[in-house]
């Protein structure tokens, strides 16, 4: 198909799709409506399980199986990127070059790094109480490490990044999540059942299994994202074709 033919074809089809979407939108319950049966049940269930952040309750307790699948996607993508971005037979590695940065940026990065780590840790730890959780905190933790790259250079990042340990931590956390579900199964309450002591509402130790899974997800996301970005960084900075000059 020529480019114009393709565009015409698409625009015609898109017009139909747009008409369908508009019709569907007019038949949906209006924005801001009050009919949320599942949502209301979820709120009640979450409160009954002493979880202040109902979203965490849905994610790590009521629909924990979804999140298990989601974490497996992350785990699989990290493995997949590792395989796809491996050193090809005709490639080698070179040493990363130093990259220039403003001294203020360097200083700022050095200050911000621990602060970001702290924020990330805080977000993970309070996942069952306030907005945030394993994923959000994990991303912040991973970003914190990469401040070393953007505010200094790749060599600094490599020094502070325990890649081998993180690689293992990623797999272990993914396995832990799947294994945690077996506790409930062994107790006859069903896979991923929240059978741990629930604690007191609005306390760090509340909500039983939610807090544990939340922590496992935090570890997995933080280490997974770091490993994932490590493969990209290697490609962008270090890996060269054997024909390329070093």
């Amino acid at each position: 198909m020529s480019r114009t033919a393709r565009l015409r074809l698409f625009l015609a089809a898109a017009a139909v799709l747009a008409a369908a979407l508009i019709t569907a939108a007019t038949e949906l319950p209006g924005f801001g409506g009050h009919h949320h049966p599942y949502g209301e049940r979820a709120v009640a269930a979450g409160l009954a399980r002493q979880t202040a952040n109902i979203i965490s309750s849905v994610n790590f307790d009521q629909r924990a199986f979804d999140t298990l699948g989601e974490e497996s996607i992350l785990f699989g993508s990290v493995l997949g990127a590792a395989i796809l971005l491996r050193l090809a037979r005709d490639e080698g590695k070179r040493r990363a070059a130093a990259e220039p940065v403003l001294p203020t940026t360097r200083l700022f990065g050095a200050t911000l790094l621990p602060v970001t780590l702290l924020v990330g840790g805080y977000l993970v730890a309070h996942g069952q109480l306030s907005p945030g959780g394993g994923f959000q905190g994990g991303v912040a933790l991973a970003t914190a490490l990469h401040l070393a790259y953007v505010a200094a250079d790749y060599r600094v990042l490599k020094r502070i990044r325990p890649l081998a340990a993180l690689d293992v931590a990623d797999a272990l956390a993914a396995g832990t999540y799947a294994a945690l579900g077996l506790i409930g199964l062994a107790q006859g309450a069903g896979y991923l059942a929240n059978t741990l002591p629930l604690g007191t509402f609005n306390q760090m130790s509340s909500s039983g299994l939610v807090a544990v899974i939340n922590a496992a997800v935090g570890v997995e996301v933080a280490s997974g994202v770091v490993v994932l970005l490590a493969h990209f960084l290697d490609q962008a900075v270090e890996i060269v074709h054997n024909g390329e000059n070093r």
Binding site: V101, L102, T104, T105
Partner: peptide, 16 residues
Amino acid sequence: LLLAIGGTVTTMAVAR
């Protein structure tokens, strides 16, 4: 404070 410092430093970096 974070916003002020972060804004300033990044503005300098962007300026450069």
